[in-house]
Amino acid sequence: MTKKQKVIISLVLVVIFYFAFKIMVITSREETTVLPLGGVVREIIAPIQKGITWITASLNDVVVYFNDNRFLRQQNKEMAEKIVRLEEEVYSLKEQELENQRLLLLLEYKEEKTENYDLAMAKVIGRNHANWYETLLVNQGSKQGIWPGMVVVNHDGLIGRIINVTPNTAEVLLILDREGAVGARIFENRHTPGVVVGTSKSQYLQMIHLPHDLPIEPNQTVVTSGLSGVYPPGIRIGKVIEVLPEPGGLMKRATLKPFVDFFRLEEVLIIKKVKTPEEKIVSEEESVVENA
């Protein structure tokens, strides 16, 4: 390219640029009108544009659909996890509430009996070690000062007694067990001694060896008599629900419904020491005299 050609080209460029700039300034005014040539360009391109816009919009819809789907699935998964977490929380709160209620009752009982007994609380950690005995395992043992022979109660009434201990556990023989006989009497008339033992129907107790002329009726309350020397007197055992003659005809027996719900025991109180018994022990002779 010669120098002359270069100069000409540069001049042409300058002129073109000048005009381009001029046109730009003119067409920048607010009341712009589409120039005829521009209109033609637009008109030609418009249908193609329309088609492509439609295609891209449809594609976009598909992409959005899948994106939404993924988002919703993710959200669904998170929600499900959240529900499980919340349900667990609700369950644990309910559990705590129930425990609170139970502990409150036990605490009330403990405060009420603070004059009578030295009580220790224990949690039930197991049940029925062997099939033959009705027993419970609790989480207090010799380390906490628990020894065989101690009586176990809760706010409802008598549960049983400790039969063996390890350093941190103790086994409780329930009064439901046939081996766990308890000396008992009727609370309302004070002087009807008998023995409460378990039955084969495990949720009931029976009071046996009652003389046939003793005044005993349904709905009367049975408490410990203290005569056996194992259980302190005056602890509630159960309610009489029916009185039947014994097979020989000379004695009567009563079926009792225990106050304690043995199937839902979770916390118990162990009587470590009897300070003053709830009631005075009434001897058999006295009771016979008074009845007469």
Binding site: A20, I23, T27, S28, L35, G38
Partner: peptide
């Protein structure tokens, strides 16, 4: 031309 205003701006 397609855009319709400031004709020459992109050209320049």
């Amino acid at each position: 031309l397609y855009l319709g205003s400031y004709i020459g701006m992109n050209a320049l």
